[in-house]
Design a protein around this nucleic acid. Structure first.
Lengths: 207, 207
DNA sequence: GTGCTACGATACGTCTGCGTTTCGTAGCGA
DNA sequence: TCGCTACGAAACGCAGACGTATCGTAGCAC
């Protein structure tokens, strides 16, 4: 299930015997088109023929690579993974801010953001999509928790807090704006968000 | 658009001449079935024939009351409105807690919660649903903001905060758990949530 | 150049849902 | 009791998508 994924874990053995550039190209076109359409028409509105037309590909080509609509969607969602990266420099507070700005920016405009409602809906119907989306969300949350943990260790953030809950409070407004209020969360608003949710500890030492 | 709604605003004139109990009954059955199915199969998966079967109603009966699938869904979503009520007694902090507990409880198990992913998805496709959902979300948020405003006025909450943002930070974790992490938010967790996000002002006077 | 293989185009039968129509029945108000 | 009207059941044509199969073409590796 995770054997033919993109390289990234472990050393790259000769497990990929140059499978044919045509296959690679077709798969990329199809998955990309599927994501585009998923954002436009949603999970229930997606059709194989629509994907084929969007990708500029024959319908039979899709059925050569996937068993059906469900497998295609699952595979397409899987390709959506890595979008935010963990910022490196600066204080923990700065890194939290940078991470949230990445989230806010990609939430404002990205394939992922466009697909998010459809994915949430799909996760409610298909256990496979549920697993993928839950794992992805957990990873993102954990990135933030890790940053907050460092902040506590370095004394930038008051100790004794539930960091998981804190992370959800930080991401929450961005999510609420996108999914409930349907208005954008300006990345410039991340700074006041962090300032308000993450008050400095009693004895400031960084500044 | 809001002329033949349920009674509640203004004096009840003779605008409702006992329209026929059969109509009322059919509409209730159909709308209820539509909401059930909306939660089960989603926006794209909903079919008129499915609603008819679930409601125990002939398909033609649905078309007698609604023009099509879209109008039915919009109408069904509209009936989902009043679920939480503004708590009355106690301090502002207590009332905020009570309100969030209502949200958490209904988010854990209710028709509304079951339909939420479908509604979010539908709002992305249909402007009409978008308007309904946005308005409903705004009202809920405003209830919380009002409570927070009272809290600031009574000195329970530190002044100078962005109360809109604060409200989103309070609701955020509940929403994030439901839609992104796909795990329930225990209503018992509301208390630590409020404690962590709403630190008392420097000079406590209520306790 | 020469097999091999993936692809494009197309047609096919099937199924499902749409929205409409018809007609007989049963519940409603007076 | 008697019209009136809403309803249930069923059938209809239509459209779209499914998933499959066939065949000619074009790109790939050697």
């Amino acid at each position: 299930m995770e054997a033919d994924a993109a390289p990234g874990g472990g050393p790259p053995p000769a497990a990929t015997p140059e499978p044919d550039p045509r296959v690679e190209r077709s798969r990329r076109l199809i998955l990309s088109a599927a994501l585009d359409l998923l954002g436009e028409v949603g999970y229930g509105g997606l059709t194989i023929e629509g994907v084929a037309a969007r990708a500029g590909v024959a319908k039979s080509t899709i059925y050569r690579h996937w068993d059906g609509k469900l497998e295609l969607i699952e595979d397409a969602i899987r390709t959506l993974k890595a979008t935010v990266s963990l910022p490196a420099g600066g204080s923990a507070r700065d890194r939290v801010t940078a991470l949230l700005q990445q989230v806010a920016t990609s939430m404002a405009s990205s394939t992922w953001s466009a697909c998010l409602p459809a994915i949430i809906d799909a996760a409610e119907r298909d256990p496979q999509v549920l697993t993928i989306h839950r794992r992805f969300s957990c990873e993102r949350r954990q990135m933030l928790v890790d940053l907050l943990t460092e902040g506590v260790a370095s004394g930038e953030i008051a100790p004794g807090l539930d960091l998981g809950l804190l992370a959800e409070c930080l991401i929450g407004p961005i999510v609420v704006r996108r999914l409930l209020l349907h208005e954008p969360f300006d990345p410039a608003g991340v700074l006041p968000l962090v300032s308000q949710v993450l008050p400095p500890p009693a004895t400031p030492r960084g500044a």
